[in-house]
Design a protein around this nucleic acid. Structure first.
Lengths: 348, 348
DNA sequence: TTGAAAGCGCTACCAT
DNA sequence: ATGGTAGCGCTTTCAA
């Protein structure tokens, strides 16, 4: 292998850009004694062009020697398209369910050659947030939760997003939708409580902002399930705090409820504990069911019945994204993807 | 306001770049009847240049009319530096503690003009992952957990990262370190158990990969605290599964332990439940203490004693990053940032 | 006060 | 099989 003297790279022509030392493809070309074009061909394995084996080796060696890492921004600027998939993190604290889903999705999209990044939204108004996302020119945007205006989709698409996908209770004009119909969760729970003989059903609705998008449909699902029966539905606003749960539990006798759908397993644990502390027997006096099928439900006594949620497969979603990116013209798909199943344990 | 005919932007000179329609600053300039330079001056509020008020208005109006969003990649290419702060998400499922910390940090860095993104690491070997990060040319990288080779720091710095910060039990050569000394957690727990009269102490060590970086130091902390006393320390490997906990609980009589530090509140809940199911009385037979001070600890019966963790303030970390970015020459700082405190409830 | 133009790093077209 | 080169969108210097 030959070694050449290498110039100090990036001697700034104008003084303003901060001097940087990351080796560029020009540096690799110089060291390998070839042109920048050849470097590009070799490192990208361009099939339309044949490069001789010795040249290939020289380029690879030079790249390794310099620790060359391509510049994604420059590449996507030239390509007119990035490989970036943007996932705004939801406003509410994400549970393990969502965490696993994201991990699986990142893995699948990674294998398809995309770079997935999550970005926060805290402290930005809707418009600002969407602008911030659009500045990154992602090739696709996946939004969990429902807070996306149709206009936002337009902005993102104009900024080059070839796929905008929402995961949430409602579809948005112009965007692909993975509809997670949370009324189904409520319907399952309501139906289960009814089938096990409960007639005065309370439904916890968290007061925490950001959870509304899920809590409202879950409540409505219970109403749907019990509509036209002799059962009643009582809405129970609840903050995720011990004191709030204790206050609610104190009112339990006057509420006279014999069934409770607690929004999810965590709120169920919170309220069930408060109820037990007040002497309410579960399930005899009041049956309790949660949702999400978290580990903690199995550890409670009585073991918590729950609505198991089947989130969409990350692999399938990755394929949807890839398809949409490759054929951006196709109309927005809508899939209903939320599987639900009752897991009956001891609390109902 | 005047309107001009606007050309179809981005008529591709060569056919290869995918045709795109995002308006550029040139489009804004055309519509406003000024040069691209003027557009840049106005939209960036460049103080070195005075632009007349009417011109400003025309530019702003044109930008709004077109829905112009600047192209971050082009900007950072020109600037030689991005505003991107990269946070690789930890391999293990992140709890609410970490979630709040990240949210606070994003907020603080956002206010300083940075764009924070989290990127996954699943399915990539260490080298590949670091390369993938480096391609994005982040101005700073914040790594939680300990899996960062000194060589990785070099790669990132050569790729333009002006600050590499690790948050974890160990410092890495060349990187700023926010040292979270988890032995302190173990020491607190061990000391507390000893002070409350326990002498045969078990310490849960999760078998889940990725947790080792925290579990080992916590175990060592307990050993440190009890070293030279008449107390014994028993290491208890445990998977986060009911069956594993039941198996461990079945061995409890032969283990003869009167104190337990369960790694964190979740493992504490898991094992405490299994112990109670086998008739072990908590705290009488065995005292149990967790860590992280999660809500669920307050809901258990007996209420779970725990080691409360004080994570570093997001705002302070944001300031550290900003300082490091502005003055990249400064030597790596090391701060010890993990506050710990015993929260004694009923389980000890 | 504004405009022309260079060039950041990269890739793909068209020569050689 | 390789090299020259234009140009992606942006900012900033220098000139007008």
């Amino acid at each position: 292998m030959r070694y050449l003297m290498v110039q100090i790279p990036n001697t700034p022509a104008s003084s303003s850009p901060a001097p940087r030392s990351a080796p560029t493809s020009a540096d690799v070309a110089r060291l390998a004694g070839v042109s920048r074009a050849t470097v590009s061909y070799v490192l990208n394995n361009t099939s339309a062009v044949r490069i001789s084996e010795p040249t290939r080796r020289r380029v690879h060696d030079a790249a390794e020697e310099l620790g060359y890492v391509p510049h994604a921004a420059a590449r996507s600027l030239r390509a007119g398209q990035s490989r970036l998939v943007l996932m705004p993190s939801p406003a509410f604290p994400a549970g393990p369910l969502y965490g696993r889903f994201v991990a699986e999705l990142q893995w699948a999209l990674g294998h398809l050659g995309y770079t997935v990044v999550q970005c926060g939204t805290v402290g930005l108004h809707g418009d600002e947030a969407v602008r911030a996302w659009a500045e990154l020119r992602p090739v696709a945007v996946l939004v969990a939760g429902a807070d996306l205006a149709p206009q936002a989709v337009t902005v993102l698409k104009r900024a080059g997003a070839r796929a905008v996908v929402t995961l949430g209770p409602e579809a948005v004009e112009g965007a692909h939708a993975l509809l997670m119909d949370h009324t189904a969760v409520g319907r399952r729970a309501g139906r289960h409580l009814y089938d096990t003989g409960r007639r005065r059903v309370g439904v916890v609705v968290p007061v925490e902002t950001g959870l509304d998008a899920f809590a409202r449909p879950r409540l409505r699902g219970v109403r749907d399930a019990l509509d036209g029966t002799d059962a009643t539905v009582t809405e129970l606003p609840l903050a995720y705090e011990e004191e709030a749960a204790a206050r609610l539990a104190a009112r339990w006798p006057e509420l006279g409820l014999d069934g409770l759908f607690a929004y999810n397993d965590e709120y169920a644990m919170l309220l069930m504990r408060a109820l037990q502390d007040r002497g309410v027997r579960v399930p005899r006096d009041t049956a309790v069911i949660g949702a999400d099928d978290l580990m903690l439900g199995r550890l409670l006594r009585p073991r918590l019945s729950t609505v198991h949620l089947e989130l969409p497969s990350g692999r399938r979603l990755a394929e949807l994204v890839d398809r949409a990116v490759r054929a951006p013209g196709t109309p927005a798909e809508r899939h209903t993807v939320l599987g639900t199943a009752i897991v009956r344990r001891e609390s109902t």
